[in-house]
Amino acid sequence: MEAALDDAAASFDPLRRTLTRVAYRMLGSVADAEDAVQEAFIRWMKADRAQIREPEAFLRRTVTRLCLDQLKSARRRRETYIGPWLPDPIVDEEEEEDVTLPLMLALERLSPLERAAFLLHDVFGADFEEVAETIGRDAAACRQLAARARSHVREARPRYTLEKERGLELARAFFDASRSGDMTALGSMLAADVSMHADGGGKRSAAQQPVLGFDDVMKFHKALAALFLKHGSELVRMSSVNGLPGFVTRESDGEFQTTAFEVEDGKITAIYVVRNPDKLRHLH
């Protein structure tokens, strides 16, 4: 039994990272992705591995099918979610840049099958025969699913190339201005149609609706600045957050928080803040 377990782990472990990336992009949750991958490992142990010619394709199919099952219950949970929902933040992982936070949010608007077809084919490079076998549709239907998904997410693709260092410089400037209360400096970084999205999940205070437009975002941050000056906000590190420039902080309640910025033409067009402690546990 122990030898069989070692054999299964030896062939599975090199693929675990890739499988976790598939699952996370399907689900937007680190914990749920890890659960799906662990269940796939259990099934891998029980499988007749000698008869499986392409272990990676087999395991990718297994993980995707598990995620499709999870998406049904995840969508029901999000119908009662308190405030805006954002995917769990992934920090300082270069490979995350192939699916940035805005694209993750665009994927939320797709059907589970559209999401699977798009991710498997467009992101992970699986051919449509594999996609068809994975989701139980023929290859022609999978092409249509991926095409529909592509048209829906096209607008979420970055239109401007932002050098990583420039992005982190802008994030650092935002941190300094927002925590010191320098509203002039803060305002100079924001686009006229800037929006702010904060995910507290009902566990920590956060705006219950997106804050839209320059004036309202400025008003919101003016109020926040007074709180930061009174209670403090510790910068943990500057980082990439789901492929966007941002930072991790520890706030006055001792909990982590991530802030990420969508930037176009040198101006911040969207601010994404995750405060829900359930989504930040993996950062510890």
Rank of each mutant, 00 (worst) to 15 (best):
A3N: 02
A4M: 11
D6K: 08
A9W: 06
A10E: 04
S29Q: 12
S29H: 14
V30S: 00
E34D: 14
A36G: 00
E39A: 14
I42M: 11
W44E: 14
M45N: 03
M45D: 00
K46W: 06
Q51P: 03
I52R: 14
R53I: 02
E56C: 04
T62R: 14
K72H: 12
S73C: 00
S73D: 04
G83V: 07
L86F: 06
D88W: 04
I90G: 01
D92N: 14
E93D: 15
E94S: 09
D98L: 11
T100M: 08
P102T: 04
E108W: 04
E108P: 00
R109A: 11
R109F: 02
R115C: 03
L119S: 04
L120A: 09
E129L: 08
A132M: 03
T134L: 05
C142F: 05
A146H: 05
A146I: 01
A149Y: 05
A149F: 07
V153G: 05
R154Q: 15
R154H: 13
R154D: 14
E155N: 12
A156I: 01
L162E: 06
E165H: 01
E165G: 05
E165T: 09
L168N: 03
E169W: 10
D176M: 01
S180I: 02
M183R: 00
A185Y: 00
D199G: 09
G200L: 05
G202D: 06
A207N: 02
Q208K: 13
G213Q: 07
F214W: 13
D216H: 09
M218D: 04
A223V: 15
G232S: 08
L235H: 06
R237Q: 15
M238H: 02
S239L: 00
L244W: 06
P245C: 10
G246T: 11
V248R: 08
T249R: 12
R250Y: 01
D253K: 02
E255Y: 10
V263M: 06
E264T: 13
E264K: 15
V273F: 01
V274D: 03
P277E: 07
K279E: 08
R281K: 11
L283K: 06
